[in-house]
Structure formats: structure tokens, C-alpha cells
């Protein structure tokens, strides 16, 4: 009898946190949704790792074209990085405001996040347009192909993130802080923070490592 009780306890308390719930049932929807999105984000990061690997292999294949150190502007990259870091912070403020259902701080945090994301995109777009105008487009060399696909893929993700951000503001405006809207907001915050993590890899590997040598 005591044996079966112990076995039952072990199943009910798999992580040994001292709380035994006899029939806990499925996890709440918020956890299921966020966990599924977390797995998607990790698969997205795996996809980015393929672009990183391609860049690392092709970084020296310049085919007589420019090297990284000749086309990267450290100052622009620093501004882009600060924009994304601050936007991650304001996105966190917006998610706290959503949790305490404060509309004013939610709109303010999301609006600042949106502006910072747009500044980032504008700087990146100008950099790309400038490179293409000088004849250093993605078809110039294998290095430039890898550069444009890696950095461009991150830029596309940020663009999608900005659209999602505006959608979230509209949904909170139209529907209020409903449980499903809050779940979407949580997924958006995860997405935005994950993009920031990928950008850390981009500016370190592409711009600083590639720009130095």
C-alpha cells in the first residue's frame, strides 16, 4: 500500500518540488502555447545556424570583390545594435504592462519598440541599397551572397516582427487584454527577444570578426 502511494507520488511530482498534485491534468493553455512557440523559435535558431555556417565557410571567397573590412561601417552597426537592445527592453516593459493590464504603458512600450525596430530596418536597408549601388550586390561574390542572405534573413524576421507588433496593438485596442490576446503577446515578446539574441551573433560574427581581419 505504501509502495503504491510512493510510486503515485513520484508520478505526481516529477520534478521533486514538494508539491504533489494527484491528477494535475493537462497544462494550462498559456504554458502549452508558449512552449510550442519556444520550440518553433529554437527551430528558427537552427535555421539561422545554417546561414551562419554558410557565412563562416564562404567569408574568404570574395572572388576579387570587396572584403568585409572594406564595406562594413562599425558606427552604423553600433547604432543598429543599441536600437535592438533598447527595443528588447521596451518590449519587456510592454509585456509587463500587458500582464498588469495597463493600456497606457502597453501602447507606449509597443510604440517605442516599433520606432526602434523601424530605425534598425531603415539603417539596414540603406546599407544594403548603398552596397548594391556600388556594384557589391549579392551576386558579386560568394561572400556577399552569404552576407546578404544571413543579414537579410534577420532583417526579414524583424520586418515580420514589426507587423506582428502593430497587429498586437490593434488587437489590444479592439479586444482588450483577453486571455488569447495575452498569449499572442507573450509569443511576440519571445519572438522579439529571440531576434535580439540572433542579432548578437550577427554583429559579433559578421561585422566585428569579419570586419577586423
Amino acid at each position: 500500500m505504501s509502495m503504491t502511494a510512493a510510486v503515485g507520488d513520484a508520478h505526481a511530482d516529477p520534478h521533486h518540488i514538494g508539491l504533489v498534485v494527484e491528477h494535475p491534468g493537462p497544462a494550462p493553455k498559456r504554458i502549452v502555447t508558449a512552449y510550442g512557440f519556444w520550440v518553433f523559435l529554437l527551430s528558427d535558431i537552427v535555421m539561422f545556424s545554417c546561414f551562419f555556417a554558410a557565412y563562416a565557410v564562404l567569408v574568404s571567397q570574395t572572388a576579387g570583390g570587396p572584403k568585409g573590412s572594406e564595406i562594413f561601417e562599425q558606427r552604423n552597426v553600433a547604432i543598429e545594435t543599441v536600437c535592438l537592445l533598447l527595443s528588447s527592453f521596451t518590449c519587456g516593459m510592454a509585456s509587463i504592462a500587458a500582464d498588469v493590464r495597463n493600456r497606457f504603458w502597453f501602447y507606449l512600450g509597443m510604440a517605442v519598440t516599433c520606432v526602434l525596430g523601424l530605425i534598425f530596418l531603415a539603417i539596414e536597408f540603406r546599407e544594403f541599397a548603398d552596397l548594391v549601388a556600388r556594384g557589391y550586390g549579392p551576386s558579386r561574390s560568394a561572400f556577399l551572397t552569404a552576407f546578404f542572405s544571413l543579414v537579410g534573413c534577420h532583417g526579414l524576421h524583424v520586418s515580420a516582427g514589426v507587423l506582428w507588433l502593430l497587429t498586437m496593438m490593434a488587437q489590444v485596442f479592439a479586444k482588450g487584454f483577453r486571455a488569447d490576446v495575452l498569449r499572442r503577446m507573450m509569443c511576440f515578446a519571445l519572438f522579439w527577444h529571440a531576434l535580439d539574441i540572433i542579432w548578437v551573433g550577427v554583429f559579433s560574427v559578421v561585422y566585428l570578426l569579419g570586419g577586423g581581419s
Binding site: L19, V21, A27, P28, I31, Y35, M186, L190, H193
Partner: peptide, 10 residues
Amino acid sequence: HIGHDLAPGD
């Protein structure tokens, strides 16, 4: 809920 895992990000 007490006794459940935390969602990522929470």
C-alpha cells in the same frame, strides 16, 4: 497554477 511548469518567458 501552482504545481505546473512555467511557460517560457514567464
